[in-house]
Amino acid sequence: MDIKDIIRPENRVYKKSDLLYDTTFNFCPGCGHGTIVRLIAEVVQEMGIEHEVIGISPIGCSVLLYDFFRFDVINASHGRAAAAATALKRVMPDRYIFSYQGDGDIAAIGTSETIHTCNRGENITIFFINNAIYGMTGGQMAPTTLTGMKTSTTPGGRLTQESGFPLHFTEMLASLDGTYYATRQAVHTPAAVRKAKKAIRLSLENQKLERGTSVVEFVSNCNSGWRMEPVASNQWMEEHMFPVFPLGDIKCEGKLIQRS
């Protein structure tokens, strides 16, 4: 059988979601942001909710998020996506509202808004991309930067006595009574992508239950910030990030998952 006979529309088993504009993502090669954005579009398309969803883009690498999605999006100020999401949901309770935020946005400047949004149990979804570094501004330390990790503002490696510890923000959010679902995922392998996609779908479906906030953290790479080749960065992530930020569900159906 010739390749030409395989490449026919009826044989197509995977293609980029129609809910993404046909533009090139403005992320660095191999960046997990692209995969996550793609997955969100796929899930929205599969759920058939593109007329009911409003996304909120942050400040940082994903600030241009709204250039990609073919559904309504707004851009919130740095760290305040959860506040904007709260208001959007309160005035339009029948819509699906999600924010998409990096580690600096959510776990540094936006800590207060995020905690109180989860504590009120707003029926929204928060996507939190944790790559342990500030990508957009050139690779400075983030709240989630690993101990000993070198960044442009921790040239000798993060010292806990100087700069504190890597912040386990999703665990903090999970401990709040208003948080209904909290999970930590990755998108660096096909198996991880499949799991992550299920988590995204569940987090959006949860909004209809009106039981509280859903938080999906993605441990992701920043090969530019980490100064690595994309594939090597994914390996480094497995070896160094996952022990500190283990993947898996943290809270399901309002109950914390006991981990051994």
Binding site: I74, A87, L88, E113
Partner: peptide, 22 residues
């Protein structure tokens, strides 16, 4: 009318922003 006591003035104005977007 939605009336919400917020955690800060920063949150308040950003909620105004969110609701205004709608």
């Amino acid at each position: 009318m939605v009336v919400l006591q917020t955690e800060s003035e920063t949150a308040s104005i950003n909620m105004v922003y969110g609701a205004a977007c709608a």
